[in-house]
Write a protein that binds this DNA or RNA. Structure first.
Length: 604
RNA sequence: GCGCCAGUAGCUCAGCUGGAUAGAGUAGCAGGUUCCGAUCCUGUUGGUCGGGGGUUCGACUCCCUCCUGGCGCGCCA
């Protein structure tokens, strides 16, 4: 038996079948078994029975290709096999007809009774409809956003936030125990630059004349933080211009802006002393982190854990991780630095974990961090990263492997960047031009629902054009409103019925489902029936965009139905049956939008 | 140079892990509501799935090779 941390990734997802697909598959297995008994097939023949939804309803509702896949091993023509199977299929109330078509497909036509039954399941399972237990008993952590706390989130982070949040929700509906985590990069040089920036702005407010470094953080938010700090600490952190600015490397353009800012950091530390430097540092960190937290909350994204990078160093976890690698013989010294021999695990080159000046690298923190994740008992860890980090995957997986953790227990999802458009015009997003759009600005302009929806309508690896005008438009062009409108329409029906003393009677409706036989009604029911497998498939493949596309189709089915038939009618039996169908559709829209972090409003 | 992601209708994108005649939305065209919300519905035009080979009963999907675009290849974080 393998040690527990060497076990491979649990793969809970086998074929996720709907009730009906499973039933058909069972029928086919029974037929094949009967044919084995009859001597038509070898008794050791193994059939992989796959049931597909048909694209064209002329091909029935469900189709099976088993006759084609068996042709070779059974050494018979596919159509002959299909015929044999059909002749041995047990009777089923759910199947009205089977046909052999094309090269040897077996098409199944499902009875209306069986199709209508989904309505009762949706109404009784309600918000639980669509869930499954394939991930039961497994802990998975989803780490996402994790933007440096050196400034507000911008629209580039929004896609990762929307994707990670929806993915987490999806995994939960698949039965996983999910932990949502934000890794706070609160250590390192960038944070020191922020602290120095805050202090210099503070000095300016306190009346000390200093020149702000070109490499400092220029944003207005730094001023706000400095102002708060000044109110809080008074002039206690003040120093003279000469004390601050003397003997520094010159700033750009004449000098080196990197050396200049590094000198300022050293100066801040020496003039302020450790305690006061930490005060300034924490003022910046806490303010920005709280701001990010607040921003994300407004975006419908909340985390279970905000994991501090600094805590790794404070608890000596970085050195412990390096030592662990050393003990296993994967570390060597060269040029005064410590190197992890990652090439042994497929990396292009070895990587430094401890610099010649004794400082550990960011990579070393990341090794410790990922070790920590698994030590916390995660079976699987999912990292949602920006596409620019893909070069990093190999070395992190190499480190895990070196530490005895199966690398496939870490799954990295890369999210491509989104390019903003305002109609035809591309919105410049460079930080330098100062015109980059914050996530907050996006939320204020476009709204949470449309932003969340737009971010996840494209699959994550796909480059994406995000049109602000389209997302903003409250019209038919905008899919999120199209879906929400369907939901609101159904809610309006309920209100309408109450006004007319015709309140929806679900029991009567459920007894009369056989009255629902219009083409648009059947189509809507069939679409509803697909929901659980769409969810399962989306969870399995980490693809929330499938939910978005499904919901668009579902809303389309509803609107067609609504337009073709009336629900508020005198025939109480038919009226209540139709309302059962509408309310089932409403429930599925509600459930699906919920996964995507989009509200399902009762009126628009 | 090496590696990762992408290339599907004029535009924005799906395509259920290899299945039947490649689908939506939008744009274009032609229609529909005295009605429960027209933020809606119906019909229709539009494709050498980047190019070329290969694998097999069958390829947008898998393999090879070229072309194009994005990103990455630090003792930065």
């Amino acid at each position: 038996m393998l040690p527990s941390d060497l076990r491979t990734t649990f793969n809970p997802f086998r074929s996720q079948n709907t009730v009906m697909k499973q039933h058909i598959a069972d029928l086919i297995h029974q037929a094949i078994d009967a044919l084995k008994t009859a001597g038509e097939f070898d008794s050791d023949l193994v059939a992989h029975v796959q049931i597909d939804n048909t694209r064209d309803k002329q091909h029935g509702d469900l189709a099976c290709n088993v006759a084609l896949t068996l042709a070779k091993v059974a050494r018979r023509k596919p159509r002959d096999i299909a015929l044999l199977i059909c002749q041995h299929l047990p009777q089923s109330d759910s199947v009205t007809k089977t046909e052999i078509a094309g090269p040897g497909f077996i098409n199944f036509f499902i009875s209306q009774d069986a199709t209508q039954a989904v309505i009762g399941r949706v109404l009784s399972e309600a918000e639980k409809f669509g869930r499954n237990h394939s991930g039961a008993g497994h802990k998975v952590q989803v780490e996402f956003v994790s933007a440096n706390p050196t400034g507000p989130l911008h629209v580039g982070h929004g896609r990762g936030a929307a994707y990670g949040a929806s993915l987490s929700n999806l995994l939960e509906t698949a039965g996983f125990q999910v932990e949502r985590e934000y890794y706070v990069n609160d250590a390192g040089r960038q944070m020191d630059i922020l602290a120095a920036s805050v202090w210099l702005r503070y000095l300016q407010l306190a009346g000390t004349e200093v020149v702000f470094p070109s490499n400092g953080y220029q944003g207005d938010y730094v001023n706000d933080i400095a102002q708060q700090l000044h109110q809080q600490a008074g002039d206690r952190l003040k120093h003279s211009t000469t004390a601050v600015m003397a003997d520094l490397h010159a700033d750009a353009p004449a000098g080196d802006k990197e050396k200049h800012v590094d000198d300022l950091i050293v100066r801040a530390k020496s003039l302020l002393g450790e305690a006061d430097y930490d005060l300034v540092f924490d003022a910046g960190l806490n303010s920005i982190r709280d701001d990010i937290k607040h921003d994300l909350h407004g975006f419908g994204v909340d985390f279970d854990q905000w994991f501090s990078e600094r805590s790794l160093g404070q608890n000596d976890q970085i050195n412990r991780a390096i030592t662990k690698l050393q003990e296993k013989g994967h570390v060597y010294e060269d040029g005064g630095a410590l190197w992890f021999r990652s090439t042994e695990f497929g990396d292009d080159k070895d990587r430094v974990v401890k610099r010649d000046n004794g400082q550990t690298t960011y990579f070393a923190s990341d090794i410790a961090y990922h070790l920590n994740k698994f030590e916390r008992g995660m079976d699987t860890v999912i990292n949602v990263w920006g596409a620019d980090h893909h070069g990093y995957i190999t070395r992190v997986k190499a480190a895990l492997q070196a530490l005895g953790i199966a690398p496939d227990r870490l799954v990295v999802k890369l999210v491509q960047f989104a390019i903003l458009y305002r109609g035809q015009e591309r919105v410049p997003m460079s930080t330098r031009s100062g015109s980059f759009v914050t996530l907050r600005a996006l939320r204020e302009e476009v709204g949470k629902d449309a932003s969340r929806f737009f971010y996840v309508t494209r699959k994550a690896e796909q480059h994406m054009d995000f049109d602000l005008e389209l997302a903003k438009s409250e019209s038919k062009d905008n899919p999120v409103y199209y879906i929400q409108y369907a939901h609101a329409r159904i809610c309006t029906l309920i209100r309408k019925l109450a006004d007319k003393n015709m309140a929806w009677d679900s029991n009567m409706g459920l007894e009369q489902l056989e009255r629902l036989s219009e083409a648009t009604e059947i189509a809507l029911m069939q679409q509803i029936e697909l929901y659980p497998e769409v969810i399962a498939h989306a969870a399995k493949n980490h693809e929330p965009h499938q939910v978005a596309h499904y919901l668009k189709d579902l809303a389309g089915n509803f609107h067609s139905y609504y337009n073709a038939h009336r629900m508020v009618i005198d025939d109480a039996q038919l009226r209540n049956a139709r309302m059962c169908l509408c309310m089932a559709a409403r429930q599925v829209i509600d459930n699906g939008l919920g996964l995507l972090g989009v509200d399902a409003p009762e009126q628009m």
